[in-house]
Amino acid sequence: MEHFFIGMGVSILFLMLCNLYRVVAGPTVIDRILGVNVIGIKTTVLIILLGTIDRRVEMYIDIALGYALLNFITTIAVARFYQRIAPTVNSDKKESLHSASPSALIDEGAAVAGSAGGKGEIK
């Protein structure tokens, strides 16, 4: 059973490495935040796996709980920060930003927009 847990841990570690690609190569900063968030959730699971292998789950689980809390707080904080500075970053595109605001994006009365043909695309 221990060997199985170790194999699972190595698989999760490999998947985290694959996620790291999105963090390094993400086109926008939001993509990177997304990758870090997913890696953090996998880390929570990995810590508990480590505790089971180490036979001291009751200690590791507190660390996992703290890690889950911190991961969530980090994601929220960084996402909110970039959401707040987004208008200044995109200030040169102010006109297109206004024309693409949600109320202009969708025809009044129609429930659906952004359909495949794309008369109402975001960009």
């Binding site: 959730i41 709980l65 959401q83 987004a86 693409a100 952004g114 960009k123």
Partner: peptide
């Protein structure tokens, strides 16, 4: 932890996609 992830994961997703929408990340159709 399970309960917490059930509440926190959609909320974090929502925050990220809202920030991306504010950023006008290019949209694929």
């Amino acid at each position: 932890i399970v309960l917490y992830i059930f509440i926190a994961s959609p909320t974090a997703t929502h925050a990220i996609i809202d920030a991306g929408y504010e950023f006008r990340v290019p949209y694929w159709t």
